[in-house]
């Protein structure tokens, strides 16, 4: 089994970190993983995305053309990536910031207010974590909640660990 996941949003929403946590958590549970960030002149406010492949088998290519899972935290990301999704894929939409609906009918769409949810938990910057929680509930192949929580400690730099309780 292989999942090809794209996490996309504004820079600063933590899409790269979310992708890295998925990769670390799945790796700790014995899966083959890869993670490629969209890199460049991105900063808080710009757009960013990352490609994460998680598989039972050795990963041929870490690049993704047709994601089986797409997490979009902002509207431009929905417009950019929805059309590339593999049929039967899973799309998670952050309804706090995205008013548009998905157009595809051959995919499963889950609408959740990740940013509002995270704000109530303590910080709207943790919308990425809310989305990950939602993802592994839908796709338990990827990793367990426990592995994901442990990955938080492994993937987050020392300086920023003070936020982990919120997450």
């Amino acid at each position: 089994m292989t999942e090809e996941i794209i996490v996309a949003g504004f820079g600063g929403q933590g899409v790269l970190l979310a992708g890295k946590m998925l990769a670390v958590a799945a790796m700790r549970q014995g899966k083959h993983v890869s993670h490629i960030p969209s890199y460049g002149a991105e900063m808080r406010g710009g757009t960013a995305n990352c490609s994460v492949v998680i598989s039972d088998e050795e990963i041929a290519s870490p690049t993704i053309e047709h994601p089986s899972v797409l997490i979009v935290l902002n509207e431009p990301s929905l417009k950019k990536f929805e059309k590339t999704m593999a049929p039967g894929g899973l799309l998670l939409v952050n309804t706090t910031l995205i008013k548009a609906k998905a157009e595809r009918e051959d995919i499963k769409v889950v609408y959740q207010d990740f940013t509002d949810f995270a704000r109530e938990a303590g910080s709207d910057k943790s919308a990425n974590m809310a989305a990950l929680g939602c993802l592994i509930k839908e796709k338990n192949f990827i990793c367990s909640l426990e592995a994901l929580i442990n990955a938080l400690d492994e993937a987050v730099s020392q300086r920023n660990r003070r936020f982990n309780t919120i997450n």
Binding site: K20, A23, M27, V33, S34, H35, I36, P37, Y39, T63
Partner: peptide, 10 residues
């Protein structure tokens, strides 16, 4: 290439 430099793998 840049993709190899930027990608993370086990």
């Amino acid at each position: 290439d840049g993709y190899l430099g930027q990608m993370s793998e086990p």
